[in-house]
Simulated scan of single mutants.
Amino acid sequence: MAAFVAFILLLMTGTLVPVNSDFRQTPDGIQVFVVSNGVHSDLVFPVREPRTATNWLQKLNDSTVVSKFGRYEYIGFGWGNEGFYLGSYGRQFPGLGATLRAAFPSPTLLHVDFYKNAPQPSERVVPLLISEAQYRQLTAFVVQSWQTDSAGRPLLMNAAGYTPDDFFVRAKDKYHLLRTCNDWTNRGLRTSGLRAALKAPFAASVLYQARQASKKPPRQLPTD
């Protein structure tokens, strides 16, 4: 019982303990967004980022996707339990069975969501200006999260998402109680040198640390 209580306390207090607490936004950096729908959290990027020569349409490498989303400006990624994602079609909440199975190692998907314009900052949308190096690390984290075919292309699992603007690709790693959708977002921020939570069981955990980072003054660039 004591171990269980300690585990719950770690989950809850981990939200308040920052990792990479010295992170500062980069003046004139590349803008990315941490976005939540209240339950899940996503990482949102420009579809095309010229300074790092990043083009997500090229990375997805699918002619239908390129044709359909070529005029969109931003793209979001969220990782999660396959059964939970697919059980949420039609704005339904997955059944008890899917919820219980998600507590144990289970298959995962990446939810890919396109935006015609930049997300607007709000209670659930936090913009961050990051360096080119941090951007490359964060994009690499996402790319390393999807499964690929023999040609190195991500495996589209389902071309139809919840709306005309999203779809799913098959992801790596297993989802379980200690590795959740919000933990994935948090790990992406942490491993890229951005401020993150020690543990992020909830979307609010991710947003809290991202918002604290956004409030810090940008780091000072060296002067001549």
Rank of each mutant, 00 (worst) to 15 (best):
M1S: 15
A2G: 01
A3L: 12
A3W: 03
A3Y: 02
V5A: 15
A6R: 13
A6P: 02
F7K: 11
I8T: 02
T15M: 14
P18E: 11
N20K: 01
S21C: 08
D22T: 12
D22Q: 13
Q25S: 09
P27L: 06
D28R: 14
V32L: 05
V34S: 08
V35E: 09
G38H: 04
L43M: 14
L43I: 14
P46N: 03
R48S: 09
E49C: 07
P50V: 04
R51Y: 06
A53D: 03
A53I: 04
T54F: 10
W56A: 02
Q58S: 15
Q58D: 15
L60T: 05
D62A: 04
S63H: 08
S67P: 04
S67H: 11
K68M: 12
F69H: 07
G70W: 07
R71P: 13
E73P: 15
Y74S: 10
G76R: 10
G76C: 02
G76V: 02
G76S: 11
G80A: 12
N81F: 05
E82R: 14
F84Y: 07
L86G: 07
L86I: 10
L86V: 04
S88I: 01
S88V: 00
S88N: 07
Y89T: 08
Y89H: 13
G90L: 03
R91M: 14
R91E: 14
P94M: 00
L96W: 13
A98R: 05
L100C: 02
R101P: 10
A103E: 15
A103Q: 15
T108G: 13
L110I: 15
H111I: 14
F114P: 09
K116C: 08
N117W: 05
N117G: 08
L129W: 09
L129K: 11
S131E: 03
S131R: 09
Q137A: 15
L138Q: 04
T139Q: 11
T139A: 13
A140E: 08
A140C: 00
V143L: 12
S145H: 00
W146P: 06
Q147H: 13
G152P: 05
R153P: 08
M157P: 05
N158C: 05
N158W: 01
A159H: 08
Y162I: 00
Y162R: 03
Y162H: 08
T163S: 10
P164V: 02
P164Y: 02
D165V: 02
D166R: 07
V169H: 04
V169A: 12
D173Q: 10
D173V: 11
K174M: 12
H176I: 01
R179I: 01
T180D: 07
N182H: 00
D183E: 05
W184V: 02
N186H: 02
N186C: 03
L189C: 10
R190W: 09
A196G: 11
A197W: 11
L198T: 06
P201Y: 01
F202M: 14
V206G: 07
V206I: 04
Q209F: 07
A210S: 10
A210F: 09
R211P: 06
Q212Y: 05
A213G: 06
S214F: 06
L221P: 10
T223F: 02
D224K: 15
D224H: 12
